[in-house]
Design a binder for these strands. Structure first.
Lengths: 315, 315
DNA sequence: GAACAACATAACCTGATGTTATGAAACTGG
DNA sequence: CCAGTTTCATAACATCAGGTTATGTTGTTC
């Protein structure tokens, strides 16, 4: 026999509240409604759930046993409501974040860790990709949020783009690198050092080439290429190599005192780092929350960068 | 937000069966019904439960989390159905059995133990009383079944009486009692031995008085009275006392070889031991099952008694 | 790209559940 | 033991969710 779980809930409430009237009130229903529903349950079962002729309604053994199950139903129902509430407030759910490798490793992952301190039930699925792949992912629904340097005019109509930092690259090297002792670094100075190149298909690689070309360093030797940020940093700190990294990435790594930037201004790309999301449709709450969290952190980061720059430690 | 537990059940079934159609089939419902109900759930929640545009319907993270709760609801529901099924088949429940002390202790308790080997989930609440109290208990619903010696014409109309053994008392004594060595015991022989009397308000006490009067033993001394069966047996086996006990009780105690009956026929009361139950209303299945079990055991007992009597061990 | 399977939608009906008003029954205190 | 109060059951009605069958519509598959 199939029982209606709502009937079991009613029974549990009535039993636990010691009476039909109070049980009904606890459920926010009228007393006759609960009375009739329990009557139906009793009729379906064909056995008394309550001892007859007792005015503060008292359950039979069978009624108590079924109320036990009703409590289980109520518990599951409350848990489900809690899950929904968490989800709708953005405190639970799954956010699939994609972004360019260097930014994700150097900046975003740390922010996500911080975010999850506040929202431990939000799962984050991180993936890497460049603009085209990220845009496709957002388009076909396999990605909720992308962190990507982009030219605003290249944003598809179906997506919305929120700029969070101007594109700005620097030449990075290890702390204590010979060139860091010089007040002014000239293009000629850097020619003697080997370079670490980002993956050849990355925008950062194009930035590197352009920056070096801009400053007239046509001829440079690449000693290492293709690694992710962790590898790049390892090589950078273990050698006198140079590389091009986003300003924000180097800035975020300042506390570790492993990497710094040269006082050589290079041409900056006409892109903005920004957050890319699907436009139009409803945004999953957890995605919205993470998005605004990251945006806020970047705003703070931008202020700190400005403050730092005015301190003239870098130029 | 309050969710309908039935929706959670639907969700669990669909998720676990890998599709809406199969999930609906597993629940014995039509596919459109489940589709629409889940659509409503989705609308109420305001968030997608399934990934859009996937043909074997695939749940989102939220859907999976809610399905987990749905499984809990389903489990509780099945458990409740199981409870009802057990109850309705008489394999679970509570039976409140009342009866006269000597029969309950000497015969019925053993049968109940045997019954509970087969139906361990049937709880038995045993109480003691004489005819009037038992009839009242059955009348006001505090008793399901009574085992009581009764004159059939004294059965109230609202109750039904099922005779299971003719009333038959014997004079009981310890095994090895001096009188057991005599082939024929005369009324005069018993005069010298002290008597154990049942409680003064019990029918058995009246039987005792009548039996002794019948056989002309006007003058007898009572050495012990008022105890329950266990005490009576203790005194009986520890002395040369005599007492009056129902034949069935003495018969049931034969295996222990502690108590036997004298070969002195005494007048037997015009009562029948029987099972008394409320008539008319629906009988709780567990009560019906216990009733028929006890009746069957008594039938077997009656046969064994007859067989034993033809062996002439007693008379 | 055609065939197929899976899901969504439409239209309809039944029945459960909600309501308020009211009656009956049990408990309470004197 | 009786009146008052509380508690539950019943009546009458409205509404809506959920059941059905029939029929699109859309992914998936070969």
């Amino acid at each position: 026999m199939k029982l209606d779980p709502r009937h079991l809930e009613l029974l549990a409430a009535v039993v636990d509240h010691g009476g039909l009237t109070e049980g009904a009130a606890a459920l926010g229903k009228s007393q006759p409604s609960v009375s009739r529903s329990l009557g139906q349950l009793e009729a379906r079962i064909g056995a008394p759930l309550f001892q007859p002729g007792r005015r503060p309604l008292q359950a039979t053994e069978l009624g108590l046993a079924l109320a036990e199950q009703g409590r289980a139903v109520l518990k599951a129902d409350r848990a489900a409501s809690q899950i929904v509430a968490l989800y709708r407030s953005g405190h639970a759910g799954l956010v699939r974040v994609g972004g360019t490798p260097v930014f994700m490793d150097g900046v975003i992952a740390g922010m996500i860790a911080e975010f999850q301190q506040a929202c431990p039930d939000v799962r984050v699925d991180q993936s890497y990709g460049y603009a085209d792949e990220l845009i496709e992912g957002l388009g076909n629904g396999t990605l909720d949020l992308a962190v990507v340097p982009l030219r605003p005019e290249k944003v598809p109509a179906s997506l919305q783009f929120q700029p969070i930092l101007p594109g700005l690259n620097v030449i990075a090297c290890r702390v204590g690198h010979p060139l860091t002792r010089r007040k002014l670094v000239t293009p000629g100075d850097i020619a003697e050092f080997p370079w670490i190149a980002p993956p050849a298909n990355s925008p950062l690689y194009a930035d590197l080439r352009r920056a070096l070309t801009d400053i007239g360093a046509e001829d440079f030797k690449i000693s290492f290429s293709g690694g992710s940020l962790a590898s790049v940093i390892s090589v950078l700190t273990g050698s006198d190599s140079l590389t091009v990294l986003p300003y924000s990435v180097v800035f975020m790594m300042r506390p570790q005192k492993m990497v710094t930037a040269l006082s050589l201004r290079i041409g900056h790309p006409d892109r903005n780092l920004g957050l890319l999301m699907a436009a139009g449709g409803p945004v999953p709450p957890a995605t919205a929350r993470l998005r605004s969290f990251v945006a806020a952190r970047f705003e703070a980061l931008a202020r700190r960068i400005v403050a730092h720059q005015t301190n003239q430690l870098w130029r």
